[in-house]
């Protein structure tokens, strides 16, 4: 058995950001970890009976209840007196977290369980074929928010999931990206060192859904951060404690790498709206590398 706890042989698409992030998370968490995972790409491509990629105890129940299942596991471990030595991770995709699983997640956060929740954000329901979710970006072309004569794609910006999690008054919230793999692992280890509920959201490109070449997974993820469209931040006990500062690139550099945004390249007005979203993020989190330091 190879050293990783997320073994090769899964059936994710070539260049999948989510399989990469899943390995980074579980290898950082280590073997003393139990994972409860919602239905979604990750679960489907890593646990096709009789095979599993997982080298840790893993349970998939339904599409929206991993936060509650994990609460049950954590409560059982507390009852058995093992809660301190075993990590419990609840994880799901963007839809499984921000839409159908939001209620169970909110309950878990509010009850204060000692659980790390990881949301793998590939920004649409990819397992069912790229349908729009609450975390699908503005103007993104999906099969249920398609472009057309009357449409430039998804009409709404991403639901502010990290802020929603943070509003529960939990000790740690972080966003991360596969473009910065060590940063993911640092944040996982940091989160697991903190008692109580933690929320982590990882930006994971999906070559199929975002329509980009399979070898651009890391490059595309990096551009999302460098344009300010995907701020990498950390909240500790509700306070914005850290952020990855950037020298902002125009959003167009990010948009042009992906087919889901191709329709915007000939539409400067829409690009301006997307740029506005990025600028708001930059202002809100103070992402711009301050002139004083460089």
């Amino acid at each position: 058995m190879s050293k990783t706890l997320f073994n090769s042989g899964h059936t994710a698409c070539a260049g999948c950001g989510q399989s990469l992030a899943a390995r980074l998370v579980i290898d950082a968490a280590g073997p003393n970890t139990i994972v409860a995972n919602n239905t979604g790409c990750l679960e489907v491509f890593s646990t096709k009976y009789p095979e599993t990629s997982w080298g840790v105890p893993f349970i998939h129940s339904l599409f929206e209840n991993c936060a509650a299942v994990a609460s049950g596991v954590e409560s059982a471990l507390k009852y058995l007196g093992k809660a301190d030595s075993i990590n419990v991770i609840a994880q799901a995709g963007d839809g499984g977290t921000a839409d159908i699983g939001l209620q169970a997640l909110s309950g878990m956060l509010e009850r204060g369980h000692n659980i790390l929740y990881v949301c793998y954000d590939n920004e649409a329901y990819m397992n069912t074929g790229i349908q729009r979710s609450g975390l699908t970006p503005f103007d993104s072309n999906t099969t249920t928010s398609p472009i057309g004569v009357k449409s430039t794609g998804n009409i709404r910006p991403k639901k502010p999931m990290p802020e929603i999690a943070n509003a529960h008054g939990i000790p740690y919230v972080a966003t991360a990206s596969v473009a910065f793999p060590q940063d993911i692992q640092r944040k996982v280890k940091k989160a697991l060192s903190i008692k109580g509920p933690k929320y982590m959201q990882i930006h994971v490109p999906c070559p199929l859904g975002w329509r980009h070449e399979t070898n651009l997974t890391i490059a595309v993820a990096k551009l999302a951060v460098e344009t300010g469209l995907y701020p990498l931040i950390e909240y500790e006990n509700g306070i914005l404690a850290a952020k990855r500062q950037i020298t902002p690139k125009p959003v167009e550099e990010y948009l042009k790498t992906q087919g889901r945004f191709k329709h915007l390249l000939k539409n400067p007005d829409e690009i301006k709206k997307v740029q506005e979203i990025a600028d708001n993020n930059i202002k809100k989190y103070g992402l711009k590398v301050s002139e004083a330091t460089n």
Partner: peptide, 14 residues
């Protein structure tokens, strides 16, 4: 839905 899911998780943890 979560009550049943919690006992599912607890039972699965033995």
């Amino acid at each position: 839905h979560s009550a049943a899911s919690v006992v599912l998780g607890a039972s699965a943890a033995g």
